[in-house]
C-alpha cells in the first residue's frame, strides 16, 4: 500500500474514530460530573441564563478593558493565527472536497493565492507565538508539555500543507501523504489536551456568564 493510500484510508479512519470518541468522552465525562446548583437568590431583574451565556460567549471575543498593554501584542497575534487557520481550513478548494466527501456539504472556495498568503501569515504568527512562549517570563513559567505539543501538531499540518501546495521539497504525493498524516495527528491529539478549548470555550464562557449574571455583576 502506498503511503498516500494509507494516509487516506485506514489512518484517516483511525484518526477520525479517535477524534470523535475522544471528543465525546471528554465532553460527556465533564457533563456527567454533578454540577453545583446556585442556591443564592438571584439579583432581581437578572436575564435568563441562555441570554447571559450567549452574551458572554460573544462579549469575551473582544478584549476586556482590564487587558494589560503587555498582552496586547499576543492578543492580536492570537487573532491572526486563529483567523489564518480558519481561512486555510475552510477556504481551500481541496479541503472543501474533503469535507464534501466526509460530511456531504460543500461551499465556495477562496482563490489559491489568498489561501497561500493566509498559510504564510499563519506560519509566521505561530512562530511568533512560540517565540513569545519561550521569551516571555510569564508564559515560559506557566507553559507545559501540552502547550508545546499542541503547538507542534497544529503547526505541522500548516507547514506540510504549504509545502505540498508549493510543490517544494519531495514529490507531491509523498508531501500530501505527510500532510494528511499530520492532520490525523492533530485530530488524534485534539480531545486530550488544550486544543479541546475549541469546545470548552463555549462551556466555560457560558458558565462565567450565567454565574455573574445571577449576581447582577456584568463584567
Amino acid at each position: 500500500m502506498e503511503l498516500l493510500d494509507f494516509a487516506r484510508g485506514p489512518a484517516l479512519q483511525f484518526a477520525l474514530a479517535v477524534f470523535v470518541l475522544g471528543f465525546l468522552w471528554r465532553i460527556v465525562s465533564l457533563f456527567l460530573m454533578p454540577r453545583t446548583k446556585d442556591r443564592s437568590a438571584a439579583r432581581p431583574g437578572t436575564r435568563p441564563a441562555l441570554f447571559a451565556a450567549t452574551r458572554e460567549i460573544i462579549r469575551r471575543t473582544a478584549p476586556d478593558k482590564a487587558f494589560g498593554k503587555h498582552s496586547l501584542f499576543a492578543l492580536v497575534n492570537g487573532y491572526v493565527f486563529h483567523v489564518g487557520l480558519f481561512i486555510v481550513i475552510i477556504g481551500f478548494a481541496p479541503h472543501i472536497v474533503f469535507f464534501r466527501d466526509l460530511l456531504g456539504v460543500a461551499w465556495p472556495s477562496l482563490p489559491n493565492n489568498v489561501i497561500y498568503a493566509a498559510g504564510v501569515i499563519t506560519i509566521a504568527s505561530m512562530m511568533v507565538a512560540l517565540v513569545r512562549r519561550f521569551l516571555n517570563p510569564v508564559q515560559r513559567l506557566i507553559s507545559t508539555l501540552d502547550d508545546y505539543f499542541s503547538w507542534l501538531v497544529t503547526f505541522l499540518p500548516v507547514l506540510t500543507g504549504l509545502l505540498a501546495n508549493s510543490h517544494l521539497w519531495v514529490r507531491y504525493e509523498t508531501l500530501l501523504a505527510i500532510h494528511i498524516l499530520s492532520v490525523e495527528l492533530f485530530l488524534i491529539w485534539l480531545p486530550f489536551g488544550k486544543l479541546m478549548h475549541l469546545a470548552l470555550v463555549f462551556v466555560t464562557r457560558s458558565q462565567i456568564g450565567t454565574h455573574l449574571a445571577h449576581r447582577g455583576a456584568q463584567i
Binding site: 465533564l30 457533563f31 456527567l32 460530573m33 454533578p34 482590564a66 487587558f67 498582552s71 502547550d147 470555550v201
Partner: peptide
C-alpha cells in the same frame, strides 16, 4: 470538584493574560 469547577480546571490555555490583570503581578 463539580462539573463547573472541572470545566474551569480543564480550560486554561496558559496564555498568561491574567498576569497583567493581577495587582500582585502588576
Amino acid at each position: 470538584i463539580s462539573g463547573n469547577l472541572g470545566a474551569y480546571m480543564e480550560a486554561c490555555l496558559h496564555c498568561g493574560h491574567c498576569a497583567d490583570a493581577c495587582h500582585f503581578y502588576a
